[in-house]
């Protein structure tokens, strides 16, 4: 199918986009080939990554932002990623519960996704779904992930604007600094500003930012919001739009997208290698033989790895 055919199908049947998303998420060839065809139609969307510790109000803030974005008559898609249980592979996807208000609006699309133990592959799959939503014509895409360090900073590899959300309480701010979340933030939000200590958290983050970005050309805005009543959310959307304008005026967007493509291709290679490795049973003859050679000092571990890799390439 050509991109034209696919886009027509997406427009003609509201079930088509979610189903295609499932196929992409499941690495089903039908979804992946559709995505290949659609890729030329991507690049129009502004992708906002929203990250921060559990429970700070990311989903509530997204719901509030969606209201504002719709007030400006832009379509918007939300992709909410939650962790899978490493033990059972199951997941509770609970972000949607905050976003039920717009269920009747055909210009709001919300999709929940579990991490499925993909590790490096998570960034890959998330990026693939973002491409799909982008091609499907959503000019605004909001991606929610729980940010607790490494995983949270992944979002930076696929977003145009990274929004780091914190809540009042000294601990959270210090945690964010330690986790390196602030370095990736283009916009920093202290949500639950109706709660005590919000002013302190903002002051702490402002001073931390001064340290983290001593030479930055752009001042990272630190905003206070109350997601549950919408306070500060208009200013937040304005800050996101400002950042989008800044990206364009500084030529930074092109630079970021180059980096993003590189990260994505690397993540894809990693995911592919992982998939290959999973196809290598732990008791496979080749693996056992290589381990035996290492144990018997017939071969260094490095050479054993090389021989296994060669076998994977060319079984």
């Amino acid at each position: 199918m050509t991109a034209q055919d696919i886009l027509e199908r997406l427009r003609g049947d509201r079930r088509a986009l979610p189903r295609l998303a499932t196929l992409v998420e499941n690495n089903d060839l039908r979804g992946l080939e559709a995505l290949d065809a659609l890729y030329g139609a991507t690049g129009q969307a502004h992708v906002v990554g929203i990250t921060g510790p559990p429970g700070v109000g990311k989903s509530s803030l997204i719901a509030s932002l969606v209201e504002r974005i719709r007030a400006s008559e832009r379509r918007v898609a939300v992709l909410a990623v939650d962790p899978s249980s490493p033990l059972t592979g199951g997941a509770v996807l609970g972000d949607r519960i905050r976003m039920m208000g717009r269920h009747a609006d055909p210009d709001v699309f919300v999709r929940s996704m579990a991490s499925r133990g993909r590790q490096g592959g998570l960034a890959w799959t998330t990026a693939s779904l973002v491409h799909l939503l982008d091609a499907a014509g959503f000019p605004f895409i909001l991606v929610e992930t729980v940010g607790t360090g490494q995983d949270g900073t992944d979002i930076a590899s696929l977003a145009d604007t990274v929004m780091v959300v914190q809540a009042p309480g000294l601990g959270d701010g210090v945690q964010a600094i330690k986790a390196g979340l602030l370095e990736v933030g283009d916009v920093v939000v202290v949500n639950k500003s109706d709660q005590p200590g919000a002013g302190d958290t903002i002051r702490l983050l402002r001073s931390a930012f001064a340290l983290a970005h001593p030479t930055t050309a752009r001042v990272v805005p630190i905003l206070a919001t109350t997601a549950v009543d919408g306070a500060g959310v208009a200013e937040l959307l304005a800050a996101i739009d400002d950042h989008a304008a800044w990206l364009d005026s500084e030529g930074e967007r092109t630079h970021r997208r180059e980096q993003r493509a590189r990260t994505e291709v690397l993540a894809g290679i990693r995911a592919a290698l992982d998939a290959k490795l999973q196809g290598l049973p732990h008791d496979s003859g080749a693996l056992r033989a290589a381990v035996a050679r290492v144990v018997n000092k017939e071969q260094s571990p490095r050479r054993a790895v090389a021989s296994i890799l060669a076998a994977l390439e060319d079984p």
């Binding site: 509201r14 979610p18 059972t88 199951g90 997941a91 996807l93 609970g94 039920m100 699309f109 999709r111």
Partner: peptide
Amino acid sequence: RALRDAGFEVIYTGLFQTPEMIASAAMQED
């Protein structure tokens, strides 16, 4: 939680759902 522990991916939509809300969530989440 029991369904999660059984290995399912469970989308919970909360209280007071209308038929329209249930259908649109089921569709978008496929």
